[in-house]
Design a protein around this nucleic acid. Sequence first.
RNA 1: GUGCCUGUAGCUCAGCGGAUAGAGCGCUUGCCUACGGAGCAAGAUGCCGGGGGUUCGAAUCCCUCCAGGCACGCCA
Length: 566
Amino acid sequence: MPKEHAALIRRAIESAQAAGELPAFEIPEVRVQPPANPELADYASPVAMQLGKLARKAPAQVAEIIIRHLPEAPFVGEVSVAGPGFINFRLSEAWLKQQVEAIIAEGEGLFTLDIGQGKRAQVEFVSANPTGPLHIGRTRGAIVGDTIARLLEAAGYTVEREYYFNNAGRQMEMLGRTLQVRYLQMIGHDVAMPADGYAGEYLKEIAEELLQEVGEDWIGKGWQPFKEYAEKIIFGWIRNSLHRLGVYHDVFFNENSLYDDGSVWKALDDLRARGFVYEAAVWEGADEAERAAAEAQGTPAATWFRSSTLGDEKDRVVVKASGDPTYTLPDVAYHVNKFERGFDQMVNILGADHGTQYKTVQRGLTALGYDPAKLHVVIHQMVRIYKDGQLIKGSTRAGDVIPIDDVLDIVGSDPVRYFLLARSTNTDVDFDLDLAIARNNENPVFYIQNAHVRCAGIFRMADEQGFTDEGADLDLLGENEAAFLRQVLRMGEALTYAIDEMAPHQIAFYALETARLFHPLYDSVRVFHSEVPEDVARARLRFYHAAKVVFHRLLTLMGMSAPEVM
RNA sequence: GUGCCUGUAGCUCAGCGGAUAGAGCGCUUGCCUACGGAGCAAGAUGCCGGGGGUUCGAAUCCCUCCAGGCACGCCA
């Protein structure tokens, strides 16, 4: 709606200029927003205050002139000047009530925007390597990523959800070796854990499963089959956890494929061709002390990426002296692959602990001639878990993580989703397990869902009485219903803003606000009551039909269930 | 030390350069003849971390200081 109002104001200014009532000047961007206090107006524009200087008139006077030239529009009700020069708009109440039909007609596609029409978007998220069960930090990324994907779909994009993983390398070898040790220990061998092994209990569980499956046949085997076995089980866990949260991926991209098709080494060659690669024991900008230390230790030469020329504080190793690439090189190759797939919009969800490292990848892309700004990186801050008032450190290696499944067993998917969604990605989250369990009856999530339940309840009652909302006269609706419809009409703005800013928490707050408006209304605007005439009841039933559509849409956007009964 | 994030009600957090800074939880007091009460109504609570600046207008933008989180590997 603000766009429509802004267009009207713009035309009014042009018309006033043509009539000589305002001097000629270039019209600045016309801003229109709902004011903080809804009693003042439905939408307000401060444009007259900005124009005061340009027009050399008092802002209130400019506002008057603009209003006089305002073209007619069906949605415009009362227009007035207020405060220091705001132009205040009311929506036409008659027009507003008719929006009930539009909402019902749009149904699940309610407020689908056209900004992504015909465009392809990709969201990469979770991307946890299969070294342990999904924990809450990764789950935050999963919820943020999935919700952004849903928002992009609501914006009209065709969205691909991708999970990037690495099932090779040292980490996975350690996983295999740890399982091997656990397996051998289980059948009575006295073997010690590897120094960097995975201490978590879950590998004992896997060892037990393995023992039941193969007996003692694997005693003489190397670590590789153990790694494969662990990977298979753990990936199953992760997928199952995501499934429980309503999160799905279209593509699982294996880092190995980048070695198989040569793109890792091609990325290195391309960097070299552009002059960003050299071989040395220490980086070019190293001081005397570093050089001397390297020489004394006989550090062998590695392959460096000259990232310092792109704003980095130092160069980074891309191929170790051993000949193996560091994480950077395949990661750059992966992103090149993404860019080459030609998405119109790319989003990558990362935890704060990966934020700094990602900058090296961005510099790699820049070096190769890609614009990293085309990939929108959403970095969410950390999730800290408290249990019995104690902070639980989240190290997979040390084994002190809490699998998200344990939380899901207790509180279920909807509260977990809402809790992780309903705050800005920029803030740290303290997840108090005891509180989550104890307070699950007071979670706002139920408040929102209950709005949907109440709508459904009215329709159950209507069915019993054989009463329908066909042929309702919407003019019979009252002010409360109109106020609710005003809020509903802001959903498009909420979605647009959430997508522009990649701020999915906006939708959670919008949903809560909308429910907050609904419940008092439900209390006073009754359908089935001896004092409500039949034609009014019919109009109200039609209204609740629209409200049900709204809450269903909101809950679906957040990946939450829209229950018919609580 | 450097980079990123944060500091708003007792707690957890919204707040997109605009009007009297908001919500949930908790607290106080009312409301069940009630379309499922996981509800409704009323009430209390704020040097928006400190200090400068930009602007007609700053919680919001810039600078600086203080406090906290994360990251700064030839780990991934």
